[in-house]
């Protein structure tokens, strides 16, 4: 799909969304707009509702009220897999890999429009096979990008935590996303790898004009790469602005310290 590239056009428009589960309200009246090809980080203490927000955006849970518009289409009441097909793709906290598929298979599974995914495709082996060859090529290219080539034909279950994060990210990219929702991609990853991941993300933003929304626990990590930071606490947005202004925001400091007080 060809979209005119104006920097200010919005990709994702979140309007007053809330969700409640049996009295608990992890997300309350949250609104924001994400511009095309921007890089936004959502930070906040544990239990702030960041992952719950992602579950709503990706359709894994449904909103109790409010609207979510992705590229001009309301997506808050459609199935998760349809949202992903439209180009809004997420990753998971703690990097979910399919342990009993090989690393390459994990990636190849993600490709869109595979004729072999359809049962009717069974009767068209030629189309299936040529698609598989292409998918494998693309998977190997992605693996090369993150340095996992040598694991291509190993079970993904043998990968280390950091390698799983790389696999999770590469797999999301195989699904041809317009916008990526990354849930704590840096948690538990060693600093060298974090640097590497940040470089990969920056390159993707430039070369494939992907829009990023990313959850992070620690503001410092995403200071430089983000052009905007949204801070959540207790299910609400408490601050929203340039990374620098957030860094100096008293409310934010309170939210972090406050939550620490509650935890202990």
């Amino acid at each position: 799909m060809e979209t005119t590239k104006t920097l200010n056009s919005s990709v994702l428009d979140v309007r007053n969304i809330s969700v409640s589960f049996g009295g608990v309200k992890p997300v309350q009246d949250v609104s924001f707009t994400i511009k095309e090809n921007s890089f936004t980080s959502v930070i906040g203490p544990n239990g702030a509702g960041k992952t719950s927000l992602f579950n709503l955006l990706s359709g894994m849970n449904k909103v109790s009220s409010g609207e979510i518009i992705f590229m001009g289409e309301a997506i808050h009441s459609i199935h998760a897999h349809k949202i992903a097909q439209k180009g809004l793709v997420r990753t998971f906290q703690g990097a979910k890999v399919i342990r009993r598929l090989t690393v390459a298979e994990n990636l190849m599974m993600a490709v869109k429009g595979n004729p072999g995914d359809n049962l009717l495709g069974f009767f068209n082996p030629r189309a299936r096979k040529s698609f598989e060859v292409k998918a494998r090529e693309e998977a190997m290219r992605r693996l090369d990008q993150v340095g996992l080539t040598k694991f291509a034909d190993e079970y993904a279950g043998i990968l280390s935590g950091g390698q799983r994060k790389l696999l999770d990210l590469s797999r999301a990219l195989m699904a041809d996303p317009k916008m990526l929702l990354l849930d704590e991609p840096f948690a538990g990853v060693n600093p060298t790898l974090v640097e590497k991941l940040l470089t990969v993300l920056a390159a993707l933003r430039k070369e494939q004009s992907i829009t990023f929304l990313l959850i992070e626990h620690d503001l410092e990590t995403v200071m430089n790469i983000s052009d905007r930071v949204i801070v959540m606490a207790d299910g609400k947005i408490i601050a929203d602005g340039l990374p620098k202004s957030i860094y100096e925001n008293d409310l934010v400091i309170d939210a972090y310290l406050g939550s620490r007080r509650k935890d202990s």
Binding site: K82, V89, R99, L101, R171, A175
Partner: peptide
């Protein structure tokens, strides 16, 4: 085979 282990991953990839 992916769904056998985890529904969320294939769903998040549009399956």
């Amino acid at each position: 085979r992916a769904t056998r282990e985890d529904d969320d991953v294939p769903r998040s990839l549009g399956k």
